[in-house]
């Protein structure tokens, strides 16, 4: 560029620099709603699976004796387990709502385009579910009625 003069038809308006993205271009999922819903679906699914194993075993005690069943269920009626039930319902609620979102993404032609919006709908419905459940449940756990 030292020996040649600038071309006379040099554009008046400079071409705008492309916006710098913080994330690599062309990722539909990475670091966004799609990825985090996927991560949460795996974490909640794993937690629910291990709860389910224990829950089948404790319910099987019903066949052994009323004393055995009531002794084990009695250990669940503590404030710590009450908070654990809040976590369980939160995990089940998120997994269920996001699972419906996955079904909609797969089933409907508009699904993949709406996946981000549906994720935030899932979050709102999940908060509404917990607003309905948690105060009532904590009154039962800590208030005893």
């Amino acid at each position: 560029m030292t020996s040649q003069a600038a071309p006379p038809e040099s554009p008046a308006a400079p071409i705008p620099e492309p916006k710098r993205r913080k994330l690599p271009a062309g990722t539909l999922y990475r670091g966004r709603e799609g990825m985090w819903s996927w991560v949460l679906h795996r974490i909640t699914g794993t937690a629910i699976f291990f709860f389910l194993l224990v829950h089948i075993l404790d319910t099987a005690l019903i066949r052994i004796s009323p004393e055995a069943y009531d002794a084990v269920i009695g250990t669940y009626k503590t404030p710590i387990m009450g908070l654990g039930e809040v976590a369980l319902v939160a995990a089940v609620g998120l997994h269920a709502l996001n699972g419906l979102r996955i079904i909609f993404i797969d089933l409907f032609s508009w699904g993949p385009r709406a996946q981000k919006a549906m994720f935030w709908i899932v979050v709102v419905l999940w908060i509404l579910l917990l607003v309905g459940f948690v105060p009532r449940h904590l009154m039962v756990v800590f208030g005893g009625h």
């Binding site: 019903i62 039930e85 319902v89 009532r136 009625h145």
Partner: peptide, 16 residues
Amino acid sequence: LIFPGKVSILDWAFVA
């Protein structure tokens, strides 16, 4: 959890 209105409902007799 919700319908009975109290946690103590969950025992052997309830499930039976």
